[in-house]
């Protein structure tokens, strides 16, 4: 594709801190650094996966990008229809609103993301309605088309969400996200609440839609096998920071960060002989309200040296398109998982 290398979204130094308030006067006594200096970009038409343990800031990052919550600092550039890069982070709410039709979200929990009191027609048609498609018939036709697109019967549009299973509800959620023809779709763990068999259906649907509509995905996940299947590039997050970012192949085949290595070793392997090689991380995930000194990962890292506890590693490009934030990235040779 010609525009394959065109950057659609660029995030620079994104930060989101949540204040911790205590006492009667609700004084701010500390901050949870949920997202701390995150930088990445997504090219048009590709899928970038954001992986990490729960609580590492993946969801916060994705919500900041959609301006569902306001970032504390940083820049988020989004390519508008007029092909200019616009910093969404700095825009007032009123100017973000028209941009929302270009980026939409698929939610994790298909049970709470659909209003149980509205029919499919109202749920999927709502974005259309608020963006000016007031003609009922026109809206109905579009909803029918969308439902068909995600593999649902258009006759079901009079039904309420309670009539559908988790996988079907997730399809409805996808139809709603696609209603306004967005270019960027942020999928916040869209399959983690579903059965494994249904997960595959939804992932294949997402891939099919990407092909058909030329969508760009920011795919938030904690399941590496899902990530491997769907994404071109992967960014690994740990306690609010991106520790490694590279193509899927490199992340899986030749990781450069010890945390990535540990994550990969936790992927279930069908071959029992390989299971003993699992790296079990010691200790707890660092507390984002009170992170350790230096590299946040050093208390749990088996390769840590003195410098790791003293200096914060900077993100550097060790190979073309392969970014790592680790002091020892050049010396270590880490184990990935071979692709079958």
């Amino acid at each position: 594709m010609a525009n394959m290398e065109q950057i659609l979204l660029e995030v620079k130094g994104l930060q989101k801190f949540f204040p911790i308030r205590r006492g009667i006067l609700q004084r701010v006594v500390g901050q949870v650094r949920a997202v701390d200096d995150v930088t990445f970009h997504i090219n048009q038409g590709e899928t970038l996966s954001l992986v990490g343990e729960s609580g590492c800031g993946k969801t916060t990052t994705s919500r900041c990008i959609l301006r569902a919550i306001d970032p504390t600092a940083g820049e988020i550039y989004f390519r508008t229809d007029a092909c200019e890069m616009l910093n969404i982070a700095a825009l007032p709410e009123s100017r973000v609103q028209p941009l929302r039709r270009c980026m939409q979200m698929i939610f994790q929990d298909p049970f709470s993301s659909l209003n149980p009191r509205m029919t499919l027609l109202d749920i999927v048609g709502e974005p259309l309605l608020v963006h000016g498609m007031t003609d009922h018939q026109e809206r109905q036709d579009r909803v029918a088309e969308l439902l068909q697109l995600v593999g649902m019967r258009p006759e079901y549009m009079q039904r309420f969400p309670h009539a559908f299973s988790g996988g079907q509800r997730q399809r409805i959620g996808i139809a709603r996200a696609l209603a306004l023809n967005p270019r960027l779709v942020v999928a916040d763990e869209p399959v983690s609440a579903l059965d494994v068999s249904v997960q595959a259906q939804i992932l294949n649907l997402l891939l099919k839609l990407q092909d058909q509509l030329g969508l760009t995905y920011l795919f938030v996940a904690h399941d590496l096998s899902v990530v491997k299947h769907i994404s071109e590039r992967v960014a690994v997050m740990y306690v609010g920071r991106i520790v490694e970012m590279a193509t899927t192949e490199e992340i899986f085949g030749a990781p450069r960060h010890p945390y990535t290595e540990a994550l990969l070793s936790s992927v279930p392997k069908p071959d029992p002989r390989l299971r003993s090689q699992r790296i079990v991380l010691e200790g707890e995930v660092a507390d984002p309200a009170n992170p350790p000194s230096g590299c946040y990962f050093h208390p749990r890292c088996r390769y840590a040296t003195d410098i790791c506890s003293e200096e914060t590693p900077v993100q550097e490009e060790v190979e073309t398109g392969h970014y790592v934030a680790c002091h020892r990235a050049h010396e270590l040779s880490l184990r990935g998982i071979a692709r079958q």
């Binding site: 959609l66 609103q97 608020v130 709603r176």
Partner: peptide, 14 residues
């Protein structure tokens, strides 16, 4: 806190 309220906000509802 409900997701469907956030979904409505992201869809552009006032």
């Amino acid at each position: 806190q409900e997701d469907f309220v956030m979904a409505a906000r992201l869809a552009g509802c006032g």
